[in-house]
Design a binder for these strands. Structure first.
Lengths: 268, 268
DNA sequence: GGCGAAATTCCTGTATTTCTGGAAAATAGA
DNA sequence: TCTATTTTCCAGAAATACAGGAATTTCGCC
């Protein structure tokens, strides 16, 4: 029976709906760095015939995922904004996180950002932020921006609880970056780092993503104890120092908010 | 030659990439009202075979437009959030609008929302809002929510400047709703209403979308004088009354901000 | 307002893909 | 652990996407 499907190894099996995948790959061209594409550029980039690319664009534009601009340049369209609204309103984490972030930011008196992240496919994505009226600094985390798992408190809080199977795969694929991030030179050292991260209820990191900023985050768990994301705050080093002895309290508060979210996630 | 393609009338010609369109139609099922679908439900709704629907879901999930949840229920995925970030960062209107909205909201001392809308396919979509820290009311407009063209100041400011060809088509398609909105019982009355709307630099509406709220908006134009969207504020009736004689100034400010945005749009 | 260039649509046979339909496998739930 | 549900797999039949270029429309510039 092993012979039956031998000709296409499972790890490079092509999805059945190749047309759909190719159309979506057009959409995938639109990134932060290259937010506009002409049909010809896209055709060249994906090795498509121009007339075929036009059909793909037409489908995407018709649905609203793209909009045709001037000079034949297209960009991401309004359907995305509408779909994003759906995620904002129906994401259980976001619903719970908003109030929690508000409470976490309060003691910093406008000099902190609340951060809510979700674990997704060996990455972390910020799904919501609480930004006070006038914020005196900018941060790397931003709703919709994918971040690596091993830099920043919000990421590490998730990484620490991902479970052996996933962290092993992560090590195999991105070992060098893990080592570069100071999380261990080999697999067993990495495991030790993770154990240490897990020992803290809330993680505090200094300047890992933005110079002069401090992140404080704790993991949020869903059903069966799986880590779903993290919640926390980012503030300036100066404001953190100003906390002095109260820093411990803030950590505890972050951990408590995260745990409270975990509990409420189980109830729903 | 008329016989050659007779079997598919031009007005209902199906797009060529039927597969892609069907896959996208699956994505289209996910709405504010029904944000979760199982493969079976989607197959039933779109008259697809289950095994086919699975392939569609797989493509969408692989790309991240959907995520598979528990119990076979899927919902909108992280790719949407990433794409939304691209629109936020690369939309010229949003870039200009943020500061303008901030200035417009200031005199209301926290009791107003800034609103930035875009015209799109005979609809209006809010693409950005400026919400002060503690807002004592909720509004219908919200980033990503499509709104009709003929209710609310933000919409009417756009409608007034759409041009005869589009307004005519709008009348043909949605005449009853236009009449219901009090914009005229027939085409020529509608035209008259539009002319009157155009005569004001900024539009003020009372309670058209939310009871007890007042909208003040003005149109923003792009190249060739085409209306691109509108910018304005929404406040409470009470706060508006409190303005008293200064209401005129606010209107003028809204109009001025909108014009300033139009001018800067032309420069870029 | 009109010209040239570019962008976009149209066209058809053929080859490639997708879809069907059911059965098997994997997974989740009890 | 067992059952129900979800998901993948398969191969032939049938639909459809693609090539390739020509026609057409639109756009940008005088």
């Amino acid at each position: 029976m092993a012979y039956a499907t031998r000709d296409t190894p499972a790890h490079e099996r092509i999805s059945k709906v190749a047309t759909a995948d190719k159309v979506l790959s057009v959409l995938g061209l639109f990134t932060m760095e290259t937010p506009e594409w002409t049909v010809d550029e896209a055709a060249a980039a994906l090795d498509l015939k121009t007339s075929t690319a036009y059909q793909y664009f037409r489908s995407l534009i018709e649905f609203g995922l793209l909009v045709g601009g001037s000079g034949g340049r297209s960009s991401v369209g309004p359907a995305v904004i509408s779909l994003d609204r759906i995620t904002r309103r129906h994401d259980g984490l976001i619903a719970l996180g908003r109030a929690a972030m508000g409470r976490l930011v309060t003691p910093f008196d406008g000099e902190a950002v609340g951060l809510l992240c979700r674990s997704f496919r060996m990455q972390v994505m910020c799904i919501d932020e609480f930004v006070p009226a006038s914020l005196p600094f900018a941060i790397s985390y931003e709703r919709g921006r994918p971040m690596p798992l091993f830099r920043g408190a919000a990421s590490k809080a998730i990484l620490a609880h991902l479970g052996a199977r996933i962290t092993r795969r992560l090590w195999d694929r991105q070992g060098e970056q893990i080592t570069a991030a100071g999380l261990g030179a080999d697999w067993s050292a990495f495991k030790r780092s993770l154990r240490q991260l897990r020992s803290r209820a809330a993680l505090v990191t200094h300047g890992e993503l933005d110079e002069g900023l401090v992140g404080i985050s704790a993991p949020v768990f869903g059903s069966e104890g799986l880590v779903m994301g993290s919640v926390g705050v980012v503030t300036t080093e100066a404001a953190y120092v100003r906390l002095g002895a109260r820093a411990g309290e803030v950590e505890a508060t972050v951990a408590a908010e995260a745990q409270s979210m975990s509990e409420r996630l189980l109830q729903t």
